[in-house]
């Protein structure tokens, strides 16, 4: 139990997918101009990342390893993720139309979020168990959402700041991200695995 908890803290904060592993930087730079869109993206990604890690784990163990098809891993995983995204889009539309409207175009975009594929591959490479894989994916996704929301908050304030012309837009956002990454380095040493 304690090990699982430490593993989750490590996945969410210490080895944060965005700031330490550099996975999923496209939505990090792309959809963090407002807090509510960043939160929506975080929520959708949390759902997809957890669910697809579950599916990918099952496929890896009962299909690819059982029939010695390891070389098809990349192709299979990307298809599993694409269908997971499609499936969650249908479920969310049925279950909660208001959430569906809020997430809007962000759902299909998750297919090309490298954090989802990256976490699935990390889980398989580390040979984690089923429960550990789900918890790892869920904690990583929480860390992802946390940083998305913090960064969106920073960027909302950044719009009001006076920035030298050459630095406006992407460069200043990257420099702010650098400072945020420095802050997250403060977590290193907690619950290392």
């Amino acid at each position: 139990m304690k090990e699982m908890l430490l593993m989750m803290v490590s996945a969410a904060l210490v080895n944060n997918v965005l700031l330490a592993r550099f996975l999923g930087l496209c939505p990090f730079m792309g959809v963090t101009s407002r807090i509510d869109t960043a939160a929506g993206m975080g929520l959708a990604t949390t759902f997809v990342m957890t669910f697809s890690a579950m599916m990918d784990w099952t496929v890896q163990h009962y299909l690819l390893e059982a029939y010695d098809l390891g070389f098809l891993r990349i192709v299979t995983f990307i298809l599993v993720i694409a269908s997971t995204v499609q499936f969650s889009e249908m479920v969310i539309r049925k279950v909660s139309p208001s959430l569906f409207r809020m997430l809007g175009i962000y759902l299909p975009l998750i297919t090309t979020n490298c954090a989802v594929l990256g976490v699935a591959l990390l889980v398989v490479d580390a040979k984690m168990g089923f429960l550990a894989s789900i918890l790892f994916a869920f904690a990583s996704a929480l860390g992802f959402s946390l940083v998305m929301i913090i960064f969106a908050g920073l960027r909302e304030r950044l719009v009001l700041a006076q920035v030298p012309g050459l630095f406006s837009g992407a460069p200043i956002a990257l420099i702010v991200a650098s400072l945020l990454a420095m802050a997250f380095m403060g977590f290193s040493g907690i619950g290392t695995i």
């Binding site: 630095f167 992407a170 990257l174 420099i175 991200a177 650098s178 990454a181 380095m185």
Partner: peptide, 8 residues
């Protein structure tokens, strides 16, 4: 942090 800084 250096990665973000250098790219910026």
């Amino acid at each position: 942090p250096g990665a973000f800084l250098v790219l910026g």
